[in-house]
Amino acid sequence: MTDELLNLTLHVWRQPGPNRPGGFQTYPARGITTHMSFLEMLDVVNEELIEKGDEPIAFDYDCREGICGTCGMVVNGVAHGPQRLTTVCQLHMRQFKDGEEIWLEPWRAHGFPVVKDLVVDRSAFDRIIQAGGYVSIRTGSASEANEIPIPKKIADQAMDAAECIGCGACVAACPNASASLFTAAKISHLSLLPQGQAERDDRAAKMVAQMDAEGFGACTNHGECEAVCPKGVSIQWIARMNRELVRSIIKS
């Protein structure tokens, strides 16, 4: 592993709070090693800012392992940055060249109001799940787990859809700021499984209604969401969601 040092220029979106005006600030990032993660690079910049007495750049993160879905920012116009299938917390500086200029912006969507700097409020996603993204099973009332066999192929497909980490990059990248991929992933996961059948139609109708109510855009099939999704969730689930919705309304 060869260490080389990078000197970079960051143009960072700074916004003191919700519906307050924001703008870009430029910061140097010096002596960055290629083995740092992108967020560690920001840590370094922030520690300098604090010691200088300035406010550090606010950005969200928790696990830093690419699984909790907390982190997320638009790096040079791409949600989660240049590396495919990678959250920004798993992005490493060897992806960048010495002297590069890096533009950092928050997820921009009407449904994701900015909290501060690069931090946004994604509670709309929670409300979409609350609208019906579950199986109504009372604790303790479940029957024996192996009672209903599920073909491996179906279980694997359900898992593909269930991998979504709720990061919101799909919304950030979609030219229409549509939440279709996120919503479709959950609708598909549950509609594929026998356990999800009882509430299948209701679920699709309620979740789509909530998705619309949150003010996200409509899907016009750009495929940007799938391209930036760190878990590679496929837009075939959007087609499935559309099918599920039509089905639910015809059957209602």
Partner: peptide, 25 residues
Amino acid sequence: RNAGARGSQYKKRSDISTDYAARTM
């Protein structure tokens, strides 16, 4: 709806998978 969904615009934006036809519908 879609016009209002973005809120503030990105300063930088690079598309990966969409094409000219889709963008100009």
